[in-house]
Design a protein around this nucleic acid. Structure first.
Lengths: 148, 148, 148, 148
DNA sequence: TTTT
DNA sequence: TTTT
């Protein structure tokens, strides 16, 4: 009867693409985003610099979905707190498949945009545009490797 | 060059089965466990009590894998800190599949067993056995629904 | 206007004493507990085993305060999520003093008891009543000279 | 013998002033910063917009202290993971006082700068030197009468 | 003052 | 004392 367990995910990273927002039948909003978290380290064996980027599927509900739709876009850096959920679905051949997502509900979860003006002193709109632009190239080869 | 991003998962729950531990070619240990996190709440519409159990695949490395192999078993309550990783694999038909796991490395991650003796004053071994037993029934219908 | 910042504390440890619960003028409950978190490690220099226990003052509000009064006691292991708050007060000599506490609100915060029954075997209702009672007395001299 | 307990603090906020960095006798660096975390909400009673800023004293060690000295300054937005520690000291009148800090060790802790370049454009090396210098002076009177 |  |  009492709640038992903790299921918490904390991510800080950048959106790989613009959010996808849709309305549920009951009028609530749902936003779907892909978030990249990168880490780099020195390989203890070879001493060389390594980097690994992990892609996360994040689903935002309610008010947070609306904020996502209005303010987030490809390249935006955000912080989120949510929880892990794995849902079952059927692929074209009727086979069971499972997808794990980080679900962010306004109650118990959080989403924060980071970096504010980020040194954009003067020309905010230009800065906003240049960021996605500079990512277009490198995004070429990661868009098709995303598991979702 | 500098590390950028946060990828952190915090789970507290109970093992659905005994851990599976194996040795990597280099001698390191890897333990695989399934962790259940349950939450319950009152449905705001109907007022009825709801419960949802989420199952997580957790992979422990190194020293933590060894501890898992030695001390954890079906029913044990643990706390872990790790990170999300999605890995790609091919199913029998050669199709790409993706599995998301919570990876716990000794560096940056953590695993703690909870509850110590838990009122078991006197007969620890009996207590250890009774816990899994009481879970055997309800585990009937969740073992085959686990995505991994 | 928009919320900016993250302030989150996650603790798992044992109560050093029974909780102290009191009612606010508006009828809400507030529980005050001290929580010990211990860590041990090998000193890299000397190789000897070290242990350090940190004591935290945790304040629970509302429903969580009531649960604390009913179910927690000295030695109970709990998990909490809350936030840091430093409040200012005056000591006997009128000097400003500051106390940092971990505040756990039902909204955004969490409290979970760990490890099952932990010794409450037998008379739960009696325990429920005795806890608040013993708290009223000891809370008399609570504020004036302890670190928190 | 085994570690028991979790003591974790996650903060994201802005520095209230430039970091103060000093060297320990053994050559290690220690950086002291104050971090503001703000939250805003609508008062459920009055409906008015409220804001609360909490100030945290954060201590960084080792490599992270050096990075703080080189790159952080008043206003910088950062994310940190550390742990709570309360230390005892004596004020001028010999009375015991307690100060709670968030301690960030490179092992187990983390510090990340957010939002990109944030205005440091131009003369990084000059900034690197000036920061420690200005810290040495102000750290003189650092310990004796501020809340932290 | 807790706990292992 | 920060930030939006």
């Amino acid at each position: 009867m009492a709640s038992r367990g903790v299921n918490k995910v904390i991510l800080m990273g950048n959106l790989g693409q613009d959010p996808e927002v849709r309305q549920m039948p009951n009028g609530n909003s749902v936003a779907s985003i892909t978030l990249a978290t990168s880490e780099s380290w020195k390989d203890k064996q070879t001493g060389e610099q390594k980097e690994r980027t992990e892609w996360h599927k994040v689903i935002l509900f309610g008010r947070l979905a609306e904020i996502a739709g209005q303010y987030l876009k490809k390249g935006t850096q955000i912080y989120i707190e949510g929880q892990l959920q794995t849902r079952k679905w059927q692929d074209q051949s009727g086979q069971d498949r499972y997808t794990t997502e980080v679900v962010v509900n306004p109650i118990g979860g959080t989403m924060q945009m980071l970096g504010g003006r980020q040194g954009s002193e003067g020309q905010p709109s230009q800065q906003q545009q240049s960021a996605p632009t500079s990512q277009n190239e490198s995004s070429m080869d990661f868009d098709d490797d995303i598991p979702f």
